[in-house]
Design a binder for these strands. Structure first.
Length: 884
RNA sequence: GGGCUGUUAGCUCAGUUGGUUUAGAGCAUCACGUCGACAACGUGAGGGUCGCUGGUUCGAACCCGGCACAGCCCACCA
């Protein structure tokens, strides 16, 4: 079959992916092999894969494929998350574009639209995962709103409620005014910015509310909330305000009388030392209000507009109202001054609006008891975090200081909270209405109660925390055969940004419901940024389209590019240049394949046949010997690196093994002469090496390796499931000879370059060495690689030549044209200076009595060897210089 | 405000318990090259007083203190 000039990924990717699917290589059922389980961090169902996912999925696929080829029964579960807020916002937007207002729909109608939307767009991410080559078990695709999953979430809710770990109550929570729902603390992102501090005049008054001309000045960031003020607070030790004891003041604009209270919470040094207390709209004020039994006046509606309670500017948005309040205060001469001020505001992670602290009745999970086992699992070492040093402290701190988790959301897209109320506000928690009625009967002796289910749904993370277990129906059918076999998972690969949202909570859920850790290792990938280090974002337009990249470079090149520049745990600066490098790597291997095919077409001789072989058997046998050992050496390096999750370094090792050792050295060493056939034994060995290389690389670049695997030889099996052989320990002596040979070749080529000897011009090489045996074994390789017409040994320096010194050996290069000894002399002098400097430092060390006394014997011996080597090299160079 | 991490070649990073020939790789750069796999290539080269500063040590990129800069996480001061 004719091979194309370059590797063409488009032509083979779909073919092989389909083939792997047809062969069911990715499908797993429990058997006698050990399981290697990975659950995908489920992306948002209506999302598209961004570069962060790409990195994540690639890392998982590498680990899974490697395990699959190493005797494990691998099971990688794909799926997606219903992402309640994000998806609901998209559906609401879609409806709006169609001219439909969410409010005009019933819950059922809305959910029908939402499921339609999910069916339409949910497939996009799965297609992208497949295009990337991910070896997921598609039969196990799970969605967090699948029936069994939905039931599992409800079951867990009821269970935790019965255990007293879920409660309902009015608390101050974070409110998203755009989505009109409560948020958890984790869903709020804080940003530092420059705000303004307004100093407002509050007139004092008597207990009847009669205004005085005296006033107290108060600093606030949020003048639009003053209508909700229910006190002014000062520090009891602040002498300036001591005379205000039992006093009152009037809220500006609305002239409501409020008490002046005293609490040490107030910092006299900040602002004016007096604080307006607005319990409905600030967490600190709320706590202060509780302590002093203050009235709560909520002046905001759920959408962030001012409520009736505000009395003025009712219905205006909070920020518009702020401007109006400021203007009104100014007009009444009650605005004293405005300062700029560094502050921090909380924004909703999903909708981006400024979050409003709001008192509201919500459902909460008590976290303290759940946190302890999750903490122990990681601190005790049952779960290992990679890179550990970086995240262990963060994880610990969060769990040790964890607060209760607000899990109710005022949305429709999600699992509806299984709490049931009757008209009198009595409540039970039960999965079905029928069960709820039974409970009502039991608890309240009410038969056939008229019940209404809680309108709210649960936080998305309240379903995703069950993921490692419920993808195997571990919650809905506890102890089933699959969950027993696959749980706990092997490794969880995810972004460090969801360590609290998801990782910590999965560990809690695992410990609570399975009584076992959910996975043994956690591997945190860094964040993908652009090459200038900026976050990827739609606004900057620096977030590439994955499918377009795959079309352009091929999936293997994308995987290569993202992995080669992805040091463990660090952020990754994404640069298309690295994809190019991946594409070039594909071509390099493709061309090596073409070379082998070229040799094959020249009818390889039968080894030991009648015809004389054209190669020096000794030389080719060294080449194959050497590469065999080099391969073993690299394989154990790769294994060790991968075990430490140093995937980028492992890839670099393989890359260099293939490009440098195999293509640049080995193939050149065994390359037959012009129009000569290759020795069949060497050819066979080479096919084996190439095969092993493809196997080693396959987890990283599955498509090109599978293709080459099948083109190297007719096969009935597939690389995808080819099991790794045991690594044989490499022979150090052979490896060392290889290193020496490369060094000699490079040294001589360097001289050729500097002397401007054309590649076609031959040289005569004379070797002066005490170790002839080594060079005899590689003589023909050496001759070919430096284009020497002859290689001979000598006991004496050869006049009229250029000398190259490698180790203890000298190489005299003789040519027919005159040589530039000036250049040679400069180089030798430079080298001499370097060695002399080095010698001085070694001698200094050895001359130091304390060193000789304290250093370990092997260190001392090494230093002495260094000294001897340096002295010898200096002597050799001096001799060479004398001969010039 | 508290905590964590980092600072090594133009860029991105290695450098494993302090000693392994006075610091390594990839990319980028430069020179030469179209030779029968490969110019998306080959051969070779140049490039770093390891952020600064004290200290420990016979010996420090590595250990300790201080400083500077960068990044991240956490925190209710109006």
């Amino acid at each position: 079959m004719e091979l194309s000039k370059n590797f063409e990924p488009q032509a083979i990717e779909n073919k092989w992916y389909q083939h792997w699917l047809d062969k069911k290589y990715f499908n797993s059922t429990p058997d006698e092999r050990p399981a290697f389980t990975v659950v995908i961090p489920p992306p948002n169902v209506t999302g598209v894969l961004h570069m962060g996912h790409t990195l994540n999925e690639t890392v998982q696929d590498i680990l899974v494929r490697k395990a699959r080829m190493s005797g494990f029964n691998t099971c990688w579960v794909p799926g997606s998350d219903h992402a309640s807020i994000a998806t609901e916002a998209k559906v609401v937007q879609m409806l709006k574009e169609k001219g439909i207002d969410k409010k005009s729909l019933s819950r059922q109608e809305f959910l029908r639209y939402a499921f339609e939307w999910k069916e339409k767009y949910g497939g996009i991410i799965y297609n992208q995962i497949a295009r990337l080559g991910c070896s997921v078990d598609w039969n196990r695709t799970t969605f967090t709103m699948d029936d069994h999953y939905y039931q599992a979430v409800l079951k867990v809710f009821v269970d935790l409620f019965d255990k007293g770990l879920i409660y309902r109550g009015a608390r101050m929570i974070n409110w998203d005014v755009a989505a009109k729902t409560a948020l958890s603390d984790e869903e709020v992102e804080y940003k530092d910015l420059e705000g303004k501090l307004y100093y407002v005049k509050y007139f004092l008054c008597d207990e009847n509310g009669a205004a005085s001309t005296k006033f107290i000045s108060i600093a606030t960031q949020r003048p639009e909330t003053i209508m909700g003020d229910t006190a002014i607070c000062v520090n009891p030790n602040d002498e300036r305000y001591a005379k205000l004891k039992n006093g009152f003041a009037l809220v500006p604009l609305v002239n409501r009388k409020i008490p002046i209270i005293f609490d040490e919470y107030v910092d006299p040094a900040f602002g004016t030392g007096a604080l307006k207390v607005t319990p409905a709209h600030d967490i600190n004020d709320y706590n202060l209000g509780l302590k002093h039994a203050l009235e709560v006046i909520d002046t905001l509606n759920e959408d962030g507009t001012l409520s009736e309670a505000a009395q003025i500017y009712v219905g205006e948005d909070r920020f518009a109202a702020r401007k109006k309040v400021i203007a009104a205060l100014e007009e009444k001469n009650q605005l004293l001054k405005v300062d700029t001020y560094q502050t921090r505001l909380g924004y909703s992670q999903r909708t981006g609006v400024v979050v409003e602290p709001r008192i509201s009745t919500q459902w909460f999970v008590k976290m303290k008891d759940l946190a302890q086992p999750a903490l122990d699992a990681v601190v005790g070492g049952d779960i290992t975090i990679h890179p550990g040093d970086k995240f262990l402290a963060t994880y610990k701190y969060w769990l040790e200081n964890v607060k209760d988790w607000c899990i109710s959301r005022q949305l429709w897209w999600g699992q509806q909270i299984p709490a049931w109320y009757d008209a009198d506000g009595r409540m039970v928690v039960a999965i079905t209405e029928l069960e709820a009625k039974e409970k009502f009967n039991k608890q309240f002796a009410i038969e056939n109660a008229q019940l209404r289910q809680d309108e709210d749904v649960l936080d998305t993370w309240f379903s995703s925390w069950l993921w490692p277990s419920e993808v195997f129906n571990g919650i809905s059918e506890p102890g089933n055969a699959e969950v027993k076999y696959y749980y706990p998972g092997s490794v969880l690969v995810t972004g460090q940004d969801i360590i609290f949202f998801w990782v910590a909570r999965m560990i809690m859920a695992g410990m609570e419901f399975e009584k076992q850790i959910p996975f043994k290792d956690v591997y945190f990938t860094g964040m993908v940024r652009d090459k200038q280090g900026r976050k990827m974002s739609k606004q900057l337009g620096n977030s590439p389209d994955l499918l377009q990249l795959i079309d352009q470079y091929g999936a293997d090149a994308v995987r290569f590019g993202i992995m080669i520049s992805s040091p463990a745990g660090n952020d990754l600066l994404f640069d298309e240049g690295s994809l190019e490098q991946g594409r070039n790597f594909n071509n390099k291997m493709w061309n090596a394949l073409k070379l082998l095919k070229l040799w094959a077409s020249r009818e390889p001789q039968v080894a030991g046949g009648a015809e004389p072989t054209t190669q020096t058997p000794l030389a080719t046998s060294f080449a194959t010997d050497w590469f065999q050992n080099r391969l073993s050496e690299a394989r154990s390096e790769v294994d060790s690196l991968m075990q430490q999750f140093r995937l980028s370094e492992a890839l670099k090792t393989i890359y260099s093994l293939i490009w440098d050792d195999f293509c640049s050295w080995y193939l050149e060493w065994i390359k037959p002469g012009f129009e000569q056939p290759i020795d069949s034994g060497v050819y066979k060995k080479t096919i084996e090496f190439f095969t092993e290389l493809m196997q080693l690389l396959h987890p990283y670049m599955p498509f090109v390796t599978e293709e080459i695997y099948h083109r190297l030889e007719e096969r009935t099996d597939d690389l995808c499931v080819k099991q790794f052989e045991k690594v044989i320990t490499a022979d150090a002596h052979t490896l060392h000879t290889g290193v020496l040979l490369k060094e000699v070749i490079t040294g001589i080529r360097d001289v050729r370059n500097k002397q401007q000897i054309k590649p076609k011009e031959t040289i005569f090489l004379h070797i002066q060495t005490e170790n002839k045996v080594i060079y005899e074994s590689v003589m023909s390789i050496l001759a070919k690689q430096v284009n020497a017409a002859s290689v001979s040994f000598t006991r004496e320096p050869v006049a009229g030549t250029i000398t190259v010194v490698i180790g203890k050996d000298k190489f005299y290069i003789e040519t027919e044209k005159p040589l530039n000894t000036g250049q040679q002399k400069d180089d030798l002098v430079k080298e001499l200076h370097h060695l002399q400097g080095f010698l001085v430092s070694v001698e200094k060390k050895l001359g130091n009595e304390k060193f000789v006394q304290n250093a370990k014997p092997e260190v001392l011996a090494l230093e002495q060897k260094k000294k001897a080597d340096a002295e010898m090299k200096i002597r050799i160079i001096e001799e060479s210089l004398a001969g010039l």
